[in-house]
Design a protein around this nucleic acid. Sequence first.
DNA 1: ATACTATATTCAAGATTTTGAATATAGGTG
DNA 2: CACCTATATTCAAAATCTTGAATATAGTAT
Lengths: 112, 112
Amino acid sequence: MDPYETQSEFLKAISHPTRLAILDILRDGEQCVCHMEATLNLRQAYISQQLMTLKDAGLVESRRDGLNLYYRVIKPQVFHVLDTLSSVTGIATQLPEHKHADLECPCPKCNV
Amino acid sequence: MDPYETQSEFLKAISHPTRLAILDILRDGEQCVCHMEATLNLRQAYISQQLMTLKDAGLVESRRDGLNLYYRVIKPQVFHVLDTLSSVTGIATQLPEHKHADLECPCPKCNV
DNA sequence: ATACTATATTCAAGATTTTGAATATAGGTG
DNA sequence: CACCTATATTCAAAATCTTGAATATAGTAT
């Protein structure tokens, strides 16, 4: 495939507010879907849809532990792209941690 | 606006094969539209459309010299994003310089 | 003014993306 | 097995993107 086409595919995969937020959540390592649900305050099905888009693009992969699925970014260099992006736009993305306090994530990882 | 929304807008602007190619052409500094036309072997109106998209996104600006309009990237750090991207995808974009030989660009800059 | 050149704009049809709603599945527990 | 929990899938309508075709504009030269 045309190199520009390939680059474009990759960029399209991350060119979405929710998917960017999901990637940010995965900065510190794997997280389960329920954690994203609690942090972003979005419906489960919707998050799952966006996760599938990221998965199809080869950006994330998942690991099952009981009922929970833990997603992680395959190539951490992706964050380097995002950081460079921030330096260009001058915008620092910030996760809404306050929302996390409202809704609780029931997964074992969050409830040690 | 939501930071993720802003990042997303920026990414969408560059998430297009032709626009990526245009940006690559502008790596070495300003170039006129006819130059892009000759290099990419695409219709003028189409290139102009893509340039407007880049302009609307605040990525490029133009300077008129007689009949020719010379476009340039406003923030060169944009190339840093593209380079980081290449290092993630493992894909090095290469401009079709051979095509440039076929079609001639008539602008003064190219015909010194 | 006329004609020519370089570039921009408008319009519309088709393709793709976005997102909500409903439903399905897979694993765990009793 | 029946039921619950975590997550995935399907479907469809609305929104947006893509791109070709036609046309407009702005500068230059005669």
